[in-house]
Amino acid sequence: MFCDPAFTPVVEAFRQGMGRGGAALAVTAGGRTVVDVWGGTADEGGTRPWGRDTVVNVFSASKGVVATVALLCARRGLLDLDAPVARYWPEFTARATVAQVLSHRAGLPAIRSPLPPGSLYDFDAMASALAAEEPWWTPGERHGYHAVTFGWLAGELLRRVTGEEVRDLVAGVSGELGVPDLWIGLPRREAHRAAFVLPPESPAVPGSPSSRGGFPAAGSPLAEAMADPASVTARAFLNPADQLVPGVVNTGRWRAAQIPAANGHASARALAALYGGLLSGDLLDPETLARATTAHSDGFDEVLRGRTRFGLGYMLPNEVRPFAPRAEAFGHSGAGGSLAFADPVAGVGFAYTPNRTITVPAGPDPRWPPLLEALYGCL
């Protein structure tokens, strides 16, 4: 473990918020690692200590990783962000651009027809279904969180322009950073390092991969949308139904699959290095990063039924998920409490990766504010 003495309050906040299970926390500042700590336990029974090499499913924090790969392809001239998706993916029928896919404006957050069992694990089947799907709104006119479809849409685009699977592209970025433990689909040889994801401790929106059987507050707009099985919200979270199987995220099938929006496995160290690398210019040029972190979607979210903000693949702090104190921050949260982001004003990269699931339909995870208050107090 490592902590710059100036950031000792951050580590103290981390330890005080540990509770059941385990977690890791990493922070970069000014291009160097100032915090790299972990603690608690990584197994279901609470007997295996969380170690330096423990990784955990970070759920939608995966989206920020996939977005970075897409932006790298744009920087290298392989992908034109303003081009129609069909230029690279001829079977794709929606009139959406690459930027609209990345900013949740493509109108494809869900598939209407019920998908057969096993679809969640079949990347090709999901990509084909989305290519044929009629958008829920005219692409570009509105936005709505593409909770799971984002990964198949972006992943297939990346495969078309590079000839490589998204899991291999992410592994390449991990190697470029010189930091291991950044995966889309955990290789079976690494499965023994994965922390067990503990079940949720509070009611949750049904259908998020870590929440099973909970519901948002009765009478809320999200609850009303979820109650209508034909709504875009319900379809986004409930189709395919494989993701509703209790404990699915701890199965070998889930861990090994290629579900780019939801089954990234990582260490906090790797995620903090990714966002630190973005700030330092090691991965993207300033112009590409500035465009990617500008709000392309800002306002009412057709899926989450609240106000959200997104750049090109990165979530920006918003009313539904206020994950950082500054509007300039960019990154992504994940179901159950994982969080990774960069703050270009403060010059910090931050990553928190727990296995104790706390599901909050709106607002910050209760473990985040003490960590962030301590961090910004040290800057």
Results as ranks from 00 to 15, higher is better:
Glu201Cys: 11
Pro221Val: 01
His192Met: 00
Ser202Glu: 14
Ser267Gln: 13
Gln258Ser: 15
Asn263Ile: 06
Leu198Arg: 15
Gly214Ala: 12
Ala268Arg: 11
Ser267Met: 10
Leu304Phe: 13
Arg235Val: 00
Asp242Gly: 09
Ala257Trp: 00
Ala295Trp: 02
Thr308Trp: 01
Pro206Trp: 12
Ser220Asn: 06
Asn239Thr: 07
Gly281Arg: 08
Ala234Lys: 05
Thr293Ser: 13
Gly313Ile: 07
Ala262Arg: 10
Gln258His: 07
Gln258Val: 15
Leu278Trp: 05
Asp228Glu: 14
Arg253Gln: 15
Ala266Phe: 03
Gly313Thr: 09
His192Ala: 14
Ala218Ile: 09
Ser231Pro: 11
Gly299Ile: 10
Val248Ala: 01
Val249Cys: 01
Ala256Gln: 07
Arg291Asp: 13
Pro260Gly: 04
Ser297Val: 08
Ser231Asn: 10
Asp242Pro: 08
Leu279Asn: 04
Gly313Cys: 11
Gly219Cys: 02
Leu222Ala: 01
Thr233Phe: 08
Phe215Trp: 13
Ala230His: 10
Arg188Cys: 02
Ser220Tyr: 09
Leu289Gly: 03
Thr294Asn: 00
Leu284Ala: 10
Gly207Gln: 08
Tyr314Leu: 11
Phe237Thr: 06
Ile259Lys: 02
Pro286Leu: 02
Glu190Ile: 00
Ala230Met: 02
Met315Trp: 02
Phe196Cys: 03
Pro187Tyr: 06
Ser297His: 08
Gly306His: 13
Ile259Phe: 03
Gly281Cys: 05
Leu304Cys: 08
Leu283Gln: 04
Phe215Met: 07
Thr294Asp: 04
Ala262Ile: 13
Thr293Met: 13
Ala218Lys: 11
Ala261Leu: 06
Ala270Phe: 12
His265Met: 14
Leu238Cys: 13
Pro209Val: 13
Thr308Asn: 00
Asp228Trp: 11
Ala234Arg: 14
Ala292Gln: 09
Leu238Asp: 03
Phe237Leu: 14
Pro216Ala: 09
Arg189Ala: 15
Leu186Lys: 09
Asp282Met: 03
Gly311Asp: 08
Phe237Ser: 05
Thr308Cys: 08
Gly313Arg: 05
Ala257Pro: 02
Ala290Phe: 01
Ala236Val: 03
Met315Glu: 15
Leu278Cys: 02
Ser297Arg: 06
